[in-house]
Design a protein around this nucleic acid. Structure first.
Length: 488
RNA sequence: GGUCUCAUGGCCGAGCGGUUAGGCACCGGUCUGCAAAACCGUCUACAGCAGUUCGAAUCUGCUUGAGACCUCCA
């Protein structure tokens, strides 16, 4: 696996290009991914990012890296809205639902956990929350002030962007130039306490109606949104670690400000590799809460999105996402989901066929090269769609062996079985299809199909077809294959 | 308005200068009592216009169109 580790190349947003992945400590990876803000149930678009980083996590694990994967849960923090006001979105949701802030967070955290299980995502090593790390956030803010990159005004603390720019490059990640921003962004309004439009809040003085308030050296208040990630990543992964990930939409200002906070407090960019997952689209437009074009993962499973005629399993949705690269947009359409459903079925059928194959003396095709193509795809910036294409090539060959048109040796067969299982289940995170049917139905179907089999033996096609048509009405499809009749 | 990204066959979606991406659909075939399913095969596209090159989907310029960020967002 070490040899494969050395082949891994990652697209680093910081550099704008792919680079060989060299961890700070050989064989170990520290990875931080910005998690959800739990003021509502995560929608399918949110899930895409987490599923993509789950893929990355899984592949790093398969390569034998010892990975510490930290993904936070935002359960506090003030953000700046379009009107330039500092807003507590969780507090707002709490008021709307007439619950306490922590009730809101807990309610949606439970749902998020459930979704992670359904979509077969491995749990991160740690899922820290912002509210558990207020002290760490305060300490970092104090450090930034001590270093001269932040100032206090009336119980709030702001990052001093102009001062920071004298020593560091603000915009290093997003490519933004502050002087360009200046003309285009909202201007300071009269009651604004910031010295400069690009300054951002590290700590915000409490409002009388705030639901959550913490003590600080600057009085009672709330942390800013960006500082929590700096505090938690530093605490669990150190001042510098390997990979920082998140959605494309967090690049600016969230990640840019994280870099500023880390540089402003510890003097270094927190992560060597910044990775950004692209958005999930609906009709060519980003799925988002504010556009209203979103739907919930549960609605896909239930077929209640209102957009599609039928439901799709979590496995199908996951496979669908694996057919697009994590850095590309992906359009969520019914045709595409149907195609994924059929394709997945073809792939899982071949996985089952593989178990039944019989080995011959020699192989008629290059199995090690085929297996190597799986690694080559994933080593190239986690190119899952290429991996899937190569798995379909394997599928074709498996079927040809099954038909006796190709042959495979015993060692090659063992290798292929092992690696197909690794890439389909461990890396892509697809699940073996559950039996699906109710257990009581199984003996009933055995009986019915046995009777139909007798009719067929007697060439009593009328009875045989009557049974088949009747079952079809109940949604059960009967298939007559070479090795007997199956149903689903 | 600024910054940036992208435009691929009926649909989704890889591709980073020369090789069939792949899946779905369509079509042809095998199998089958019929059907369905399954399997095999076929289908050669890169928004437009110029340019660079022996050679361009891939590089450059322009045009057109779409999207993202600039405000919370995964």
């Amino acid at each position: 696996m070490k040899a494969q580790q050395d082949q891994l190349v990652i697209y680093n947003t910081l550099k704008g290009e792919k680079e060989p992945f060299i961890p700070l400590v050989e064989g170990k990876v520290g990875m931080y991914v910005c998690g959800p803000t739990l003021y509502s149930e995560p929608h399918m678009g949110n899930m895409r990012t987490f599923i993509n980083f789950d893929l990355i996590y899984r592949y790093l694990l398969h390569l034998g890296f010892e990975v510490k994967y930290v993904r936070n849960i935002t359960d506090a923090g003030h953000i700046t809205n379009s009107a330039g006001q500092e807003v507590d979105s969780i507090g707002a949701a709490a008021k709307a639902e007439q619950l306490q802030s922590l009730e809101i967070v807990y309610k949606y955290a439970v749902k998020f956990q459930e979704l992670q299980r359904i979509y077969n995502m491995l749990p991160p090593s740690i899922e820290p929350t912002a509210t558990q790390h207020i002290q760490e956030q305060i300490e970092i803010i104090e450090q930034i002030i001590a270093n001269g990159y932040a100032y206090e005004v009336n119980g709030s603390v702001y990052f001093d962007t102009r001062r920071y720019m004298q020593d560091y490059n603000y915009g290093i990640l997003s490519g933004r130039k502050v002087d360009e921003l200046e003309n285009e962004t909202r201007t300071l309004n009269a009651q604004d306490e910031k010295r400069f439009f690009a300054d951002f809040a590290l700590w915000k003085k409490a409002n009388p109606d705030d639901m959550q308030i913490w003590r600080s050296p600057w009085g009672n208040g709330n942390p800013g949104w960006h500082i929590e990630c700096t505090a938690m990543s530093t605490k669990y992964l150190g001042k510098q670690f390997d990979i920082h990930g998140g959605g494309m939409d967090l690049k600016f200002p969230h990640h840019e400000d994280e870099i500023a906070q880390s540089c402003g407090s510890f003097g270094c960019n927190p992560a060597r590799y910044w990775m950004h997952a692209n958005m999930l689209n609906v009709n060519g437009q980003k799925m988002s809460k504010s556009f209203g074009n979103y739907f919930l993962p549960k609605q896909i499973l239930e077929g209640s999105t209102g957009l599609f005629e039928k439901s799709y399993s979590a496995n199908v949705v996951r496979f669908f996402m694996m057919q697009a690269h994590y850095r590309s947009n992906l359009d969520f359409t019914q045709d595409a989901l149907n195609a994924a459903e059929k394709g997945l079925s073809k792939l899982t059928d071949a996985v089952a066929t593989l178990e039944r194959l019989e080995a011959k003396e020699t192989s008629s095709f290059d199995v090690p090269a085929l297996v190597q193509s799986f690694y080559k795809a994933m080593n190239d910036d986690f190119n899952a769609p290429i991996l899937v294409a190569n798995l379909f090539e394997a599928t074709r060959l498996i079927n040809l062996v099954n038909d006796g048109k190709e042959q495979i040796s015993a060692p090659d067969l063992a290798l292929l079985k092992e690696k197909i299982a690794v890439f389909v289940f461990d890396v892509l995170g697809l699940q073996k299809e559950a039996a699906g049917a109710e257990s009581r139905l199984v003996p009933v179907m055995e009986l019915v199909l046995d009777l139909r089999g007798q009719a067929r033996t007697n060439k009593d096609w009328t009875t045989s077809d009557q049974i088949r048509d009747g079952l079809a009405k109940a949604g059960i499809v009967v298939k007559d294959g070479k090795e007997g009749t199956t149903w689903s």
